[in-house]
Amino acid sequence: MAFARLLIRRLLFLLVVIWAASTITFFVPRLSPRNPVRERFAALARSGGFSPTDLEKIIAAYNTKFGFDKPLWRQYTDYVGSLARLDLGLSANQYPKTVIQLIQESLPWTITLLLTTTILSFIIGNLLGAVAAWPRAPNWLRSIATPFMLLQGVPPIILAVLLLFFLGFKLKLAPLGGAYSIGVIPHFSATFVWDLFKHQILPALSLIFGSVGGWVLSMRGMGVTIQGEDYVIFAEHKGLHGFTIFRDYFLRNALLPQVTGLALALGSVITSGILVEGVFGLPGLGSVLGAAIQSNDFLVIYGIVLFITVSVATMMVIVELLYPLLDPRIRV
């Protein structure tokens, strides 16, 4: 029953995170005096179409529709109320689309890219780091890790720009941006899937190269400690083959703290993911958020930031609940 208690505690924790995140994301954009409805229609008015008085009327009507005319505390309680109904509201800028719709449209792109790259980077980085810390691995194999460690600390957005310039622009090895080639109508075929894949290569490489080094470094540090542990040495005394010791005694133990790191990485990769999506013009969550920030589209910003926060918190809770499966010492 200890597990049930832990589960309940974690779910309560999630609720608090959701509440705190929604409150913060509600108030922070309000600190700016800008009004997205006014901006949108002012832009329309400038390009001609209606008179300033009509404009004021239209703005007033939309302000009422979005509730921007109510007192702030009322807007807040309304907002929390609709959150409870899983209603994130409407986009002011892309009306009549709802925020949920915008997230639904863009999320698959982001999830595919970020999940694949984070997991690939985790696997590659940890294997390289583990091998670099394993004294009996051949030297050439151990040295593969070095260039990745040097890349550590270079932000993925810089890598994105560099890759775009050299591989995309100069060498023309990969498309320069977009989700698929211009003029192609999305359909299900091998050529289209291949086209999609090609457009993901450079963004994926930027994200992978930007994060592998971190895994290599932390894994190597961990591995250097683990390879001297008594149980690894006793395994050698048992006459086990090197690979068995590497896999069952060394890697399994060195990976434990890395798994916690993975949960954190899934959270922080969103930031770099958003920037990289921007560089390559991918239609993901990042681009939607970027556009929303530029037009001060409150509800979209709230919705996406909230969504990200809750996803990250949820993933951390899931990892915490799964962790005992990996480490018997903290099985409850």
């Binding site: 008594d230 149980y231 006793f234 005394h237 133990n253 990996l326």
Partner: peptide, 13 residues
């Protein structure tokens, strides 16, 4: 049988 048998067993196996 090693010195320090306290830590000579793999904790996750």
């Amino acid at each position: 049988i090693p010195q320090g048998a306290m830590n000579s067993l793999n904790p996750v196996m």
